[in-house]
Write a protein that binds this DNA or RNA. Structure first.
Ligand SMILES: [Mn+2]
Ligand SMILES: [Mn+2]
Ligand SMILES: [Zn+2]
Ligand SMILES: [Zn+2]
Lengths: 138, 138
DNA sequence: TAACTAGTGCAACAGAAGTGCATTTATTGA
DNA sequence: TCAATAAATGCACTTCTGTTGCACTAGTTA
């Protein structure tokens, strides 16, 4: 049993061939991926299967969904520092206006946000847009 | 010439009947509105007209678009404190998980966010989700 | 092995966003 | 004032993303 298979089972996800492939793909990418990205990477796979795999991964906290403001859902593996389970203390995301890629900045936590009286904050989504390290050329 | 007509012309938007109505609608609502909201408020109007009116308003800085993470674009009038023009110093938005409405918290500015070396921050989108003042009951 | 459960493939649908083009309305200037 | 021009609107259609229903297959369990 491989490392990936163990990881999946730890999250109560049965390690099917497709799931292992998708997990590998996500692990190799350093950026958040959209469903269509996976779709074009696995031309032979069915879109629905990929879709449901992502949903399962999300539900079982293997990946977290990212709303980067493009209108397209992105997904990235939850790593240490992700803290998806507790829905608190989340990291921020960076979307590059040049290469259009979105990355997790897991080491950058979202600061405490004050809201007016009467409002109850449950969670926070923070996306910084600009130029990423690869594109800024430095 | 009414106040609204003046406002539209100040932004280089010709004050047609439809535009004035939509502006009024936006001004009366305290929450951010989606295209479909306007659509149902003006049953007789054409969706494309409403769509293009919002685009024009956005382009001319009469409204700002809000991405609240629901996947549906919302729009709200730019007021003093909005600062859309300079794409900096923006306010945060609050999305209620109960009533599903999104409001501008114009008085609440987005704090300065640090990004890693090599990354250049151009703008920031911050959405707090939770329970709004009306729904929290206090 | 039989019964059951989970995963996959295929088809179809829904909603939002966007485009092309003809028609109507408003503006301009001869 | 009226023709030429430009802007706004209405209608039809398309694309894209996400989502669901259902039949079939593979895997698990008793
Ligand atoms: Mn992330
Ligand atoms: Mn706002
Ligand atoms: Zn980039
Ligand atoms: Zn509410």
């Amino acid at each position: 049993m491989t490392e990936i298979e163990k990881t999946l089972e730890n999250h109560q996800v049965r390690p099917t061939a497709m799931r292992i492939l998708i997990y590998k793909y996500l692990a190799e990418k350093e950026v958040a991926v959209a469903l269509t990205d996976i779709e074009s990477a696995f031309a032979k796979a069915e879109r629905t299967t990929l879709y449901r795999t992502l949903k399962t991964f999300e539900e079982k906290k293997i990946v977290h969904q990212i709303d980067d403001g493009t209108g397209i859902s992105k997904y990235a593996l939850c790593e240490s520092g992700c803290n998806c389970e507790i829905d608190q203390d989340l990291h921020l995301h960076f979307h590059c206006n040049n290469c259009n890629e979105t990355v997790c900045l897991t080491e950058h936590k979202i600061p405490q946000i004050k809201v007016p009286d009467g409002f109850v904050s449950e969670n926070v989504n923070l996306v910084v847009k600009g130029i990423c390290d690869k594109c800024s050329g430095q």
